[in-house]
Design a protein around this nucleic acid. Sequence first.
DNA 1: TTGTATGCGTTATCAT
DNA 2: ATGATAACGCATACAA
Lengths: 361, 361
Amino acid sequence: MIMRENEKKSQLSIKDISRLSGVSIATLSRFFNGQSVRPSNEVIIRKVLQETGYRPSIAARFIKGHNSGVIGLIVPEITHPFFAMIAEGVMREARNLGKLVLLGSSEGSMEIEKQIIDRFSQSILDGLIYIPVAKAENIPALKSFRDLPLVVTARKGIIPGVPHVYHDGEGGGYLATKHLVSLGRRRIAFVASFWDIPCSNTELLANHLKPSMYSFSSIERYKGYLKALEEAGIPYDPNLVVITGYGHKHGVDAASVLKGRFVDCNGVVTMTQAVANGFTAQAKRLGYRVPEDISVVLFDTNESKADYTFTYIELHLIKMGQESVRTLSELIEGREAQDTCLDVELRIRETSVKLPPETSR
Amino acid sequence: MIMRENEKKSQLSIKDISRLSGVSIATLSRFFNGQSVRPSNEVIIRKVLQETGYRPSIAARFIKGHNSGVIGLIVPEITHPFFAMIAEGVMREARNLGKLVLLGSSEGSMEIEKQIIDRFSQSILDGLIYIPVAKAENIPALKSFRDLPLVVTARKGIIPGVPHVYHDGEGGGYLATKHLVSLGRRRIAFVASFWDIPCSNTELLANHLKPSMYSFSSIERYKGYLKALEEAGIPYDPNLVVITGYGHKHGVDAASVLKGRFVDCNGVVTMTQAVANGFTAQAKRLGYRVPEDISVVLFDTNESKADYTFTYIELHLIKMGQESVRTLSELIEGREAQDTCLDVELRIRETSVKLPPETSR
DNA sequence: TTGTATGCGTTATCAT
DNA sequence: ATGATAACGCATACAA
């Protein structure tokens, strides 16, 4: 029905422009690279460009050791809103800087990730923004990066000597917990999310400073949680810590687990929207009122989403993507770059209120 | 043996391999392109490749008129789950075929979209998968595509002579409506979502076949809605049609609008999850029971999402992305390609039940 | 400032 | 089957 021949790619070259304009290819090349040419020539060149719509071939200029203007972005999963937000930021800033973005999704698999890195490094990239799959150790095939400028995003301390861009997880955990404390709540649960469960809730306090835990975002926030508790003189209770996953059902489980431990709790910090939803739904089923009996704070980004009812720690993910591109650009230009830690902010909504006096203990 | 590879951007070339292996560059090139070489040579080549990790430069082969193995993907917004799912499918299939994906997000703006198309066509793309921003007419700068193989995705009949990949919207509207009818419901509302409101609800029946409405997904589904009503002998009532947007609050509005029109309704079809959520919440506030008084069916994709309670028409968006890449590959290889219409499926969950006898009219 | 000539990493054409 | 060489589109050293 629909036919389409593979017509000749009539990509005109600099020689064609030279022929049409009467200007040598060298002068044309200089013109394209911003060097000054004779005004009379410039007029002619612009005219021919207007007529032909010619653009220099990126591939050819890349061969000559120039930048291609293409940067790579590797995410674990583009369908996850968290990574999609970062990708959006990356693309916005890339567009500002006139760069293009080659995207790879590792589908949560380290094997695929390695394969993508391999293909990327063989491609015409100027640099790479890399969001590793969760596991910290055993970053795949670092040699595959060759000498590509590299930025690690959304994780902390993964690859030595490489700039990382991440948000202030400890500060976020601190803000969230302190907010609940300020509402008169002192029995505050912490629901930590992991892709792979690293240890049990009773072991977390002892293990959380180990190097192997370094890159987990939940751990960073946990540090802030501890700090806020200590500051308020609230004793740490491992029974208030739940270790689970990232999904809706994990939030449901978390509420059940707390109930099963017979610990009373009047505040909770969760890592994601989905977990908070599950937790809240289950808490209500178990007879608690939210936010009166239990106030909920979560971590999320909120770019122009309406109807947001949860109190949350706002992560600036779009900015994180933008900052990553900016950092990578520094590297590509040959300058040095360092880690960037983005601030987080507390946004108070409907799921956290002052503890009613009668419920107080 | 002097190893001086770890010095700088020592991107080794085919000449280096030639020098290291003693085989001419021509033979090497043939080897890389799958032609047969002398077995003794093949052994040596493989050995040197193993040691060096050399890969041919994509840029250089692209100059010679070859395929770069890079395809472009333009989406309105990568943070929107709908497009993220398609992107995920695109990248999976691209990975299968050994291709890379250059991603552009038009941020819902036709201007940015035009800019991206411009930059893409100047790049080293073999082809382009294009999800236009909603408006049908006035597709920007078709000439900018040059002779790039092109596939339009998620929309129908946008660019003549170009293959489109979309899902069966009419079939989906038909399935959704017929399902509600089969539950004994005959007062079925249709909540249509648009980015730009094209006309009022009373004008929709008269206008829905006009060419300017051709590419709206809501219109396709509306056709199926009409078909199912007619088949069941249910008279069409424009008061049961609401025209609104895509957000949560639009669902809230829709429920209020229906209430304000004093029409009774015991079933509703919405275009998205967000609208369904808003509609349901508001309907409950207005005193209706869901699903007993009002059953709800929506359109969505559901790739491994747990905890899904809504009855929905499942759109296979990942498959849509994969199919787009497959179609584009045909074009790139110089073969013909035609439109692809993907099936949809009814998934019955908790928001649609048989109409209780006492409420029947 | 301009043009000529050479080189970049690869493929294609030709003789061997 | 193999190897020398001419292209490809562009950048640049060098001479003018």
